[in-house]
């Protein structure tokens, strides 16, 4: 008997853990009075999705989030590749000091600096623009650190062989280091995409129009009590917003978990 206890508890916890999602999913397909009274046999409906979809410019929000995530990732790849490479190049004066500054940066979260970052964004004319949302995250200390670790494992001989062949510094980076770090790029991309797809506070502060607002901010406005939509419609909107990432996660689960591991452990 006792050997069944743990599996049962494990499964019970798993069910508990997905229950908020399952309940919302179920509610999204039922009309609100059926949903809140838990009439399990009530008919399915797509009405909530129709109401939710008509209630806000979701297509625009999806596009904004997609562009934002792409922009941030491109910026991070560019800046962190160059910086990570600089940190594994031969030692030069000041390199280690800069590295310590970068490590410190791991703890100074962009979220905490909202007050002054807002002023910086304002003075650069970046308010209410995708660049304004993305820029503070691009020189990611975490990304530089990650790329440095990845480049470190590239054999020295490969580097020197390429230089003997006449490759320039950037040539070596592009032909030797970047291909060797492909798994790290994939891991970093997954972590970055899921982080910024979900990010809320800074985008809330910087954006004030439909044309830049990402999904999370759009969802919070849509679900605000003042808006007066019922819980089934909120559920439908929530399911819509999380669907792309959730489906991606369920398909590429192994890669996602591996990505978070690579990103965390290194």
């Amino acid at each position: 008997m006792s050997r069944y206890i743990e599996p049962i508890l494990a499964i019970a916890l798993a069910i508990l853990w997905v229950s908020p999602l399952v309940v919302a999913f179920w509610a999204a397909f039922h009309n609100v009075s059926d949903a809140i009274n838990f009439r399990l046999s009530a008919p399915l409906t797509l009405e909530n999705f129709r109401i939710a979809w008509d209630g806000a410019p979701w297509l625009r929000y999806f596009l904004n989030t997609f562009l934002l995530v792409t922009l941030i990732l491109a910026g991070q790849f560019f800046l962190c590749t160059l910086a990570g490479f600089a940190f594994v190049q031969t030692r030069f004066a000041g390199r280690d000091t800069v590295f310590i500054l970068v490590l410190l940066q791991l703890f100074i979260l962009p979220e905490v600096l909202i007050v002054e970052n807002y002023r910086v964004a304002a003075s650069l004319g970046l308010l209410d623009s995708l660049m304004g949302i993305g820029a503070p995250y691009m020189a990611s200390a975490f990304g530089m650190f990650l790329m440095r670790q990845a480049f470190k494992s590239v054999p020295r001989d490969l580097d020197e062989a390429a230089r003997v062949e006449g490759c320039s510094t950037l040539g070596v980076l592009w032909r030797v280091y970047v291909p060797a770090a492909r798994p790290t790029y994939l891991a970093y991309a997954l972590v970055s995409i899921s982080t910024h797809w979900n990010n809320f506070l800074w985008p809330l502060i910087v954006t004030n129009s439909e044309s830049t607002r990402p999904l999370t901010v759009g969802l919070s406005l849509f679900a605000a009590p003042e808006n007066g939509v019922d819980i089934s419609v909120i559920s439908a909107a929530t399911i819509m917003v999380i669907a792309p990432l959730l489906i991606g996660f369920l398909i590429f689960q192994r890669q996602f978990v591996q990505a978070f591991l690579t990103a965390g452990v290194k």
Binding site: L13, A14, V23, F200, T216, V241, L250, F256, V257
Partner: peptide, 28 residues
């Protein structure tokens, strides 16, 4: 343990959801 992959997925899933969505889910 039986259903191990379901268990792992279930435990990990909240990680990929935005906090905003999590808030909405918990309203229920």
């Amino acid at each position: 343990i039986p259903a191990r992959s379901f268990i792992r997925t279930a435990y990990f899933t909240p990680t990929v959801l935005p906090m905003i969505a999590a808030g909405n889910l918990w309203l229920f």
